[in-house]
């Protein structure tokens, strides 16, 4: 019961933070709110038994993402130029999409149910056999590094590709400070 109450409080805090981010025109403040948002998210993951995900979210979401955003803002300016107006078409689109999604989640099994496919299909095998097959007490580690090792391999490929992409985009900018428009003129 306590877990459910904490869960609900944290989810409400997440919604409030997200709304504050939407309203905030100062991008520095918005970035800080994103950091807070990630930290609340990490607390929620601890509450939902996903400790490995929680510390990854705290390190990556609240740490690295905030640094990346601040680095970008230092180059591009801290203030949003246009004031946010409530857009009726956007609101309409978002409500329709949200309504469809809520219609979709009616079929979802109840939160915490033990008889869902998620709990019965593969995780039982992992829980029973990981200790003898892999020998690592943390199941998330054994699944990540062994049972689904190809996923992790794909993930490192994605990081590598993104790293090369960032270096190509920014490295070119440094060499030719004037940018794309001047290249076109020349």
């Amino acid at each position: 019961m306590t877990v459910t109450v904490i869960n609900i409080i944290l989810l409400c805090l997440l919604v409030i933070t997200a709304l504050a981010i939407n309203k905030q025109r100062n991008l520095f403040a918005a970035t800080m709110l994103t950091g807070i948002y990630s930290l609340i998210c990490a607390s929620l993951f601890v509450c939902l038994d996903a400790v490995d995900v929680a510390f990854t979210e705290a390190a990556v979401g609240a740490g690295i993402a905030t640094i990346l955003f601040l680095g970008t803002l230092a180059l591009t300016g801290f203030e949003e130029k246009t004031r946010v107006k409530i857009s009726i078409p956007a609101l309409l689109l978002v409500s329709i999409t949200g309504g469809l999604l809520i219609y979709g989640i009616q079929d979802m099994p109840a939160f915490g149910d033990a008889n869902t496919p998620v709990q019965t299909y593969l995780s039982g095998k992992y829980i029973d056999e990981s200790a003898t097959e892999i020998g690592v007490p943390n199941l998330v580690t054994s699944v990540l590094a062994s049972y689904r090792g190809y996923d992790t391999f794909g993930e490192t490929t994605v990081i590598f590709t993104a790293g090369i992409g960032v270096l190509m985009l920014l490295g070119r900018g440094r060499k030719n400070r004037k940018g794309l428009l001047d290249e076109d003129d020349a």
């Binding site: 939902l48 038994d49 996903a50 490995d52 998620v118 709990q119 992992y126 829980i127 998330v140």
Partner: peptide, 8 residues
């Protein structure tokens, strides 16, 4: 235990 698969 909660399912480890979604966590991964």
């Amino acid at each position: 235990y909660s399912s480890p698969l979604p966590h991964v």
